[in-house]
Write a protein that binds this DNA or RNA. Structure first.
Lengths: 201, 201
DNA sequence: CGTACTCAGATACCGATAGTATCTGAAACG
DNA sequence: CGTTTCAGATACTATCGGTATCTGAGTACG
């Protein structure tokens, strides 16, 4: 066992290595895509050899999963922030729309998300882990929708879970299209959200 | 030059080879994904060698593009059929919803679409070709929306182009999620479409 | 302290696969 | 019937994910 009082240099340094790899991998996965990013390049650009990758992750899939986790963390924080900054419905929708505009404007992450999602067909590990995370994200969105609609006095006119599914799907779809075609109008996201939250569905 | 009167056996046989490769590649791309499908296996399963692939296509990307074209053809035909079977708005929406339910229920093609889309970042060829096709599809959807809304006397309450972008994005997003998580409720597609077509946006 | 052990990371290797270069034999053509 | 052409086969290369093995600095313990 490690002496708890002293600096656990060994473990510390490994954690740092792992973090460096995640940071570099995140940059490369986002800019080049999953398939086009080789573990060797990631390792070298982080100042290590491929052995370091396999010493910290079971393989490319787990590394990418860690990268996605770090992205999701920021992404969810951004959404929550957008919703809590204002307190009235229209202000919240506007803030969320702006967040969506930023996020979907440079939608590298949705592209990575869906490219990696394709791997789930071959890998049960990726499949289960990805489904787990998607459900968490959908639940978080549904919770926000529920909060916003009740606070705005809309009662349960809106099915929060359905709204969450719609918003997440629309975000992924728009991001995917947008990553290919920059002329795609991201404004439809806010419009659809407005239509969903203001009822009539 | 070939003698036009006689059977141009040479060209005929090549066209047949090309078609066989597309059919087999389509099956394999849809069931295993783009990356997990090797050109060698495609060629062998079609009764040829890899040389036949490179003799008929510039490479894996062009082969997949041909596969996507064959899919798009069927897909568009399905949508048009769903819209023209009925003539009143609700019937059309219902028919379209049913088509969406079938298409998105087994959404292998959306997964292939987005996985292949990720390659566009590395390949200008894929990028331009894919954007071209997406715009055609969006235009086709917009045209249908326009037709339906005017025939239903809704005038230009709905922006057909925006509606097309929303529907296509939602379809891609739902298909992507659904291919990972079978519990995703595809019904939201029809709901959103109804909300879009009946105005209030 | 100093010796034995552990393990993060390096090195060397393997199998698969996209792509290239070259070859071949049958069909097309004069 | 001899020549040319070209669809498809064969052989080879480069790259990459993954595995097996090694090594040396850091840790535990007498």
């Amino acid at each position: 066992m490690t002496v708890d009082g002293a600096r656990t240099t060994r473990a510390e340094r490994q954690a740092q290595t792992r973090q460096s790899l995640i940071v570099v991998a995140r940059e490369m996965f986002l800019s080049d895509g999953y398939a086009a990013t080789s573990l060797d390049k990631v390792a070298v650009r982080a100042g290590f050899s491929k052995g370091a990758v396999y010493s910290n992750f079971s393989g490319k899939e787990e590394l990418c999963m860690a990268v996605l986790d770090s992205i999701h963390e920021e992404q969810i924080a951004g959404v929550v922030d957008a919703f809590t900054r204002d307190t009235d419905l229209d202000g919240r929708i506007e803030a969320f729309a702006m967040w969506a505009r930023e996020g979907l404007g440079q939608p590298r992450w949705t592209a990575l998300e869906v490219e990696f999602g394709a791997i789930a067909r071959q890998s049960p590990y990726v499949a289960t882990e990805l489904v787990k995370r998607h459900r968490e994200i959908r639940a978080a969105i549904a919770q926000l929708v529920r909060q916003v609609t009740t606070e705005a006095g809309l009662g349960d006119v809106v099915d929060a879970d359905q709204a969450a599914t719609t918003l997440l799907s629309l975000g992924i779809g728009l991001g995917t299209l947008r990553s290919l075609d920059h002329t795609i109008d991201v404004g439809v996201f806010a419009d659809t959200m407005r239509a969903l939250l203001k009822g009539s569905v």
